[in-house]
């Protein structure tokens, strides 16, 4: 395994993407907007009292964290994997003497670095202006970081196997749009998951989407504890493992079918 080459690829992608930073800043701005809207709406609705167990300052904390978690786990890479397959430039991936997975990982890391340069200062300023209120403890911070790592793993590989369907159909991107909508509804963006109506809440707890964004924040804020915490981590691990296994299978099946057009 040529990990040194992989690291060089990661570094070169992020340095070259910094040249186009205004484009990524605009993208990152767009991704920040839905959480910001719901931050304003929910904290306004809570007013001086509380709603669903959160005060308006706690809603602000929840959604500021959501902006960060969403940005860290969102893989914009997977939107380009389909093009790479269709246009045949995946040939370059296959020819390089290192695992092909390094290529999407490189743009994943590059995208994270470039968008964080924009998102971190903005959310710090928002935090200073809006006075969020967060009650947590060190062990919850540790657990939340663990949940965040799994959330990234799950969201990346879940999007990756959907994108790899481009080996069979030219329209796999539609599934990524569907995933984004489900994340919006079921992962704690439109409202914290525990505040959803019963039917949606049941769907959120079973499907993988809550574990891509909302779950780490719920852990940090102490909204899941005891047995629920145990079950939550179990479900998250299962979905993450499933995502990795499915993408490996789809990758091998797709590669056998791939005819290397163009390039």
């Amino acid at each position: 395994m040529n990990h040194k080459g992989g690291w060089a690829l990661i570094k070169s992608s992020w340095l070259s993407w910094m040249q186009y930073r205004s484009f990524f800043f605009i993208l990152a701005f767009g991704w920040m907007i839905p959480p910001l809207i719901y931050m304003l709406v929910w904290s306004g609705a809570a007013g001086a009292g509380s709603l669903g167990g959160l005060t308006s300052q706690e809603f602000i904390a929840y959604y500021l964290l959501l902006i960060l978690v969403n940005q860290l786990t969102y893989s914009q890479t997977n939107w380009t994997v389909g093009d790479v397959i269709r246009m045949g430039s995946i040939n370059h991936w296959l020819l390089r003497p290192m695992p092909p997975l390094y290529n999407p990982l490189a743009s994943e890391v590059a995208g994270k670095v470039v968008t964080m340069v924009f998102v971190l200062p903005i959310s710090s300023v928002l935090a200073l202006v809006l006075h969020p209120e967060l009650h947590t403890s060190w062990d919850r911070v540790g657990l939340a970081l663990l949940a965040l790592a799994f959330a990234w793993l799950l969201r990346f590989f879940w999007g990756y196997w959907l994108a790899l369907l481009a080996f069979w159909t030219t329209r796999a991107d539609a599934l990524l749009a569907l995933q984004d909508s489900l994340v919006f509804l079921l992962a704690g963006v439109v409202a914290p998951v525990w505040m959803l109506p019963a039917g949606l809440k049941a769907a959120a707890n079973g499907l993988p989407f809550r574990f891509m964004v909302g779950f780490p924040i719920e852990v940090l804020m102490g909204q899941v504890s005891g047995q629920a915490l145990f079950i939550g981590f179990g479900v998250q691990t299962l979905w993450a493992a499933a995502a990795v296994i499915i993408s490996t299978i789809v990758w091998w099946l797709g590669l056998r079918r791939y005819a290397a057009i163009g390039g």
Partner: peptide, 28 residues
Amino acid sequence: INLLHSLLNLTTGVLGVYILFAQIERVN
């Protein structure tokens, strides 16, 4: 694909309003 996007846009929009007012009857 367009049909899928339209329906997603409609569903997320309507549910976004519905979920808010399932928690609270009136806001301002």
